[in-house]
Design a protein around this nucleic acid. Structure first.
Lengths: 184, 184
DNA sequence: AAAATATGTCAACATGGCTGACATAAATAT
DNA sequence: ATATTTATGTCAGCCATGTTGACATATTTT
């Protein structure tokens, strides 16, 4: 794998097996290892929170809502819909449960009173942090194995894997949340 | 680089449960950027195939089955169940559709005639490669942005992110499939 | 012959997506 | 001031894909 193909390539010969990892055009061979590792890594990554959530009668959908509300307190419902890329009906179901069970609360917007701005309650923040803690444990363990520079490398890789279209939005979102979190 | 799992030093038994760190310094604050980037990167990563699949009336479940059967021709149903970690009833539904529509075929096991060994048809292989091609495009684009060493770094990161329990199985699975693929 | 195994199937249910239609309050435009 | 648009919520139902439990069938193992 990752062959630095040095064998004398018969360039004009064409019809060569696409195994050579050259910068060749379209028909390059699938990068199976990354494809499969992403599958397994993500599965395990979300698996930790799933266990905790299921005990509360929640699922991954609740986790996503709770996560982004915790990270972006005061966000509008519309913003959340855009991030999650689901319909308001889908969101409505899980959001209602989170509100009813006192993990999330909604406050009327100050300037625009149609808006229902979203906040986590202390209970909600505790759960969000618990779930993030599980995932952080895994990430920390991985970084420890990999040595210095691993965090930066992972961030660069994952950033490069996102849609170029959304990338700015994603990075801005993360940056904005970092700022908000620092607010204490 | 041949061996993915030359696992560097897992030196100290740094038992990192959250808060157990002697240092009073902020009981390991969540690593928000990686958590969120994984969410967005994975979403985009599976989004490409999803579009193609939906035109065929298939979903992500079909993709997973097709992928692993393509990568591990002749695998047993039981093996697939274990990899996907779903029930046979869930698998049965999507597998039946794939078989009925001639993407996958089942052959009676030679030694054990109870087994229904799974293979992709040419049609199935074509679809599997098309989907893998989309994902490979994204990965290739990312690696091109990141410069040399990106593939190795990504593989190491993702490997480190998988459960330590499963890691050997995962790596063996990937290695086995690589071998099988080379056969062609 | 009996028991275990590999697989398939029927039925029912849960979660979390979706669409479409409609309701309400508040902001905005005419 | 009225009309329209916007932000949000809700009802009803469909779909995909996961679940459990029970049972059937063929084949291998004991």
């Amino acid at each position: 794998m990752a062959d630095i193909n040095m064998s004398p390539k018969i360039v004009n010969g064409l019809a060569e097996r696409p195994g050579a990892t050259g910068a060749a055009a379209a028909a390059s061979e699938p990068i199976w290892d990354i494809i499969e590792l992403l599958f397994f890594a993500y599965r395990d990554f979300v698996g930790d929170p799933d266990e905790v959530l299921s005990k509360l009668g929640f699922g991954r959908a609740h986790h996503r809502v709770l996560h982004f509300v915790n990270r972006n307190p005061g966000m509008k419902v519309a913003d959340l819909l855009e991030i999650l890329n689901i319909t308001k009906q889908s969101l409505g179901r899980v959001l209602k449960q989170l509100v009813d069970q006192d993990f999330v609360l909604q406050k009327e917007g100050a300037q625009d009173r149609r808006q229902r701005l979203l906040y986590v309650t202390p209970k909600g923040e505790a759960l969000a942090l618990k779930l993030a803690g599980l995932q952080t444990q895994r990430i920390t363990r991985a970084f420890a194995e990999l040595g210095p520079g691993a965090h930066e490398a992972a961030r660069r890789f994952l950033t490069a894997m996102t849609d170029a279209d959304n990338r700015d939005d994603v990075l801005r979102l993360i940056a904005r949340a970092e700022r908000t979190a620092r607010r204490g």
